[in-house]
Nucleic acid binder design. Structure first.
Length: 504
RNA sequence: GGGCGCGUAGCUCAGUGGUAGAGCAUCUGCCUUUUAAGCAGAGGGUCGGUGGUUCGAGACCACCCGCGCUCACCA
């Protein structure tokens, strides 16, 4: 936003700040500094008072509260680690004190001074000099915090409007410190997963986001256009087909952590772009992968949170190994009495209807089975559980089950009734793969707009010979939601997609 | 897309048909260890938008915009 449009935003608070800017200029105070040599941070000073008492420090941060008392003032400075109080006296900082009178909550300043404790016991920095680093011209929402004798924190007037918090995340981060904590945890989770994979001899790779064909998942894509090639391209819905080409090429263990894009609805668990971890391991199968997932999640939980048992949405969840493993069709038989493999489509529809679900025509048997699973078994999977062996129609890239007809070697991990990962023994038989693609094309012809396209180049790669391989996909956003106990995907994505606003 | 709810000052909210309010923030004055600092005073509004009903609308009605919850779609 340029200066003019800020000034057009007619508002007394903003107008006043422009006046202050002029007054500061008249006092020869630079409102936007070039640098400041910070050497100390709030929490460090407060946690190590004995070490820092009476020592000179340089702190910088955003003013979050001011208490002026004539010729002396207190203020709270917020830096990356929290808040610390500063004390300013006209006697000691002279002209800077007059400049300080023109500063507001939201301004960023640097303080050089010594650490002390006030009468009332608050560890503070007694300023010897004050430097304005950046003048804020928009008022930030003021939240006041009170900590009582018992250490209970009460926040008054917390910035709570969810729409504004998501649209102006920078403000949310300034004002709501717990938001920053969630994103620090997210960062630590991703870093830890990377370290875990690196120590397990994976190679991190990058594959195309712009793809001439989309595949690897059942979803509708975003379409874009390359001008000089004059061709439409799709934003990827999954990394899978490229990563498996790399397995063909001789990378035995590869992974990619990156954005996928799916042109679908937006809700608590869906954002149009989301972060996916996919990894592939040559010479292993899905049984091996289940143990690997357990280890990876446990390692991450332990390293980032120091525990493997969590309370999530009021329920105790233990990620300790081994996770429960159940077969999808066996569970359905136990639950409904129906052998879904030998059952007809009509039987399945009847079973669904009994539970109040009307199905539209043209659904494959596999989808009906999946539907029945979702409404019967899935919600009851609170503790981490691997559900194994899915109908072949649902999984055109997974290897047929070695003993069970009509199924593939696939598992999904569920926690609190929500899917957190998807994996299979990868299909490496090019003839079978071609047949699978062809039956997907029939599904497209029957109106399934999410069925898989034929990827001839992928088939060609597989025809050169692909080792047996285990593959895994983990929705990072959803994993972070679980571990940080956040109810909405928007709370773990810094800038979630919002509907465009015409005004504003 | 359906249902329900919400949108009033920078922030948090009250205001059920009759002169737009409160607290915090802002401004002025006093105040050199305060802490939701205090005391005294002041300013600040397209009540999401458009249209309608009415003598009169922040409120009632219709449509639209945005957000939340939920169902559907969807992994």
């Amino acid at each position: 936003m340029d200066n003019n449009s800020v000034q057009q935003d007619v508002n007394d608070l903003i107008r006043r700040r422009f006046e202050e800017l002029e007054e500061l200029k008249a006092m020869n105070v630079q409102a936007y500094a070039y640098q400041f040599d910070v050497d100390s941070y709030s929490a460090v000073l407060k946690n190590n008072f004995e070490k820092y008492e009476a020592k000179d420090v340089k702190v910088a941060g955003r003013i979050m509260a001011i208490r002026r008392m004539g010729k002396a003032s207190f203020a709270h400075l917020q830096d990356k680690l929290g808040r610390i109080q500063i004390y300013l006296k006209k006697d000691e900082i002279g002209d800077s004190y007059d400049a300080f009178k023109l500063m507001d909550i939201g301004d960023i300043i640097g303080i050089e001074g010594f650490v002390f404790k006030t009468k009332t016991g608050e560890i503070s920095v007694h300023a010897k000099s004050l430097t304005l680093l950046s003048k804020s011209i928009r008022p930030i929402p003021i939240a006041k915090e009170v900590v009582d004798e018992n250490g209970n924190k009460t926040v008054y007037d917390q910035f709570a409007d969810k729409e504004l918090r998501y649209r102006q995340r920078y403000v949310d981060l300034i004002v709501n410190p717990e938001v920053k904590e969630v994103f620090k945890k997210r960062s630590a989770i991703v870093t830890t997963i990377r370290q875990f994979l690196d120590t397990n001899e994976f190679v991190e790779v990058e594959t195309p986001i712009l793809q001439p064909l989309y595949g690897g998942a059942a979803a509708r894509p975003f379409i874009t256009h390359h001008n000089t090639l004059d061709m439409d391209l799709y934003l990827r819905i999954a990394d899978e087909l490229y990563l498996k080409r790399l397995i063909v090429g001789g990378f035995d263990r590869v992974y990619e952590i990156s954005k996928d894009f799916r042109n679908e609805g937006i809700d608590k668990t869906h954002n149009p772009e989301f972060t996916m971890l996919e990894l592939y391991v040559a010479y292993k199968d899905y049984n091996w992968m289940m143990t690997f997932v357990e280890n990876m999640v446990n390692h991450t939980a332990e390293k980032v949170f120091g525990k493997t048992e969590f309370e999530i949405e009021g329920k105790k969840v233990s990620f300790n190994s081994p996770w429960k493993r159940v077969s999808m069709v066996d569970e359905l038989k136990n639950y409904t009495g129906l052998d879904v493999l030998s059952a007809s489509k009509e039987d399945l529809k009847l079973e669904l209807k009994k539970r109040g679900v009307e199905t539209k025509d043209g659904l494959s048997k596999g989808k009906l089975i999946d539907e029945l699973f979702e409404i019967t078994i899935q919600p009851s999977l609170i503790q981490p559980t691997f559900v194994t062996d899915y109908p072949v129609e649902l999984s055109p890239l997974a290897k047929k089950h070695r003993t069970r007809e009509g199924l593939v070697e696939r598992f999904e991990g569920f926690v609190l009734g929500r899917e957190i990962c998807n994996a299979f023994s990868e299909l490496n038989d090019p003839i079978d793969q071609r047949e699978r693609f062809e039956s997907q094309v029939k599904m497209i012809e029957e109106g399934d707009d999410e069925a898989h396209q034929i990827d001839e180049d992928y088939l060609k790669a597989m025809e050169f010979g692909m080792p047996p391989t285990a593959g895994l996909g983990v929705g990072i956003d959803r994993l972070v939601m679980l571990l940080t106990n956040q109810p909405s995907i928007r709370d773990v994505i810094l800038f979630p997609h919002m509907r465009h606003r015409t005004e504003d």
